[in-house]
Design a protein around this nucleic acid. Structure first.
Lengths: 119, 119
DNA sequence: CGGTATCCTTCTCGATACTG
DNA sequence: CAGTATCGAGAAGGATACCG
């Protein structure tokens, strides 16, 4: 992922693809929130549901499925026999922590800056 | 923006607000792309339209307005008399460059990692 | 506990045509 | 050049109820 500064065209194919991949995870009302809950370790459906408080089971189910499909989390049975499942971040998913922090840092700074006569 | 590692609850109010602010800019099909085109300097409507190639004037107009409202870009007349306008990043908008790169870097890594039997 | 099924509303985005 | 107006399709999201 090298981008030459003088090349104004950040719309290079690889760059655009990368951005799109990232946004596929980052966009969606609950995906990042779910990732955040999993940063502290694997969780069950009900755990996440409780942490997010206002999410409906339908949405949680859908978002989990999408995160699983795109390789951000895994779903596995916690007991060999059991019905209990746990969701956990993949190695790639764990690396989202950095992204989340950068995003939040910018968001906070942006909010502060906009507060002062938006300039 | 300090977050204690042992505190699993990244759903803290300030953190969530920051994330939401960031996503308000980052989400939307064209917003980040527009920001990318402006990283190399102020541009006119038609310039951006041409760089993004497939965007409709309606969407460009809307996305520009939203970015302006949320303090990411400014719109100003380039000539004192003129009708020509230029869009430019605010200082806060310029700082998005870092975010974009981190996002793209993660996206590229994620894509590569998912390619290998998704683990 | 860990989800699905159904239904409905709203928001997003694109196409196309037109304006000062 | 720099947009706005209108329309319509489809995706996103929520409420609620129910299932193994």
């Amino acid at each position: 992922m090298e981008i030459e500064p003088e090349n104004h065209d950040l719309c290079k194919k690889a760059f655009v693809l990368a951005i799109r991949d990232a946004l596929a995870v980052v966009s969606g009302k609950w995906k990042l929130a779910i990732v955040c809950t999993l940063l502290s370790g694997p969780k069950g459906f009900a755990d996440i549901e409780r942490l997010l408080a206002t999410i409906s089971p339908r949405m949680l189910s859908r978002e989990l499925r999408e995160l699983e499909v795109n390789g951000t989390i895994t779903r596995h049975k916690s007991e060999p026999d059991g019905k209990n499942r746990k969701y956990a971040l993949t190695s790639s998913g764990k690396k989202l922590e950095k992204v989340v922090f950068i995003l939040a840092a910018w968001g906070a700074e942006h909010r502060a800056e906009s507060a002062n006569t938006h300039q």
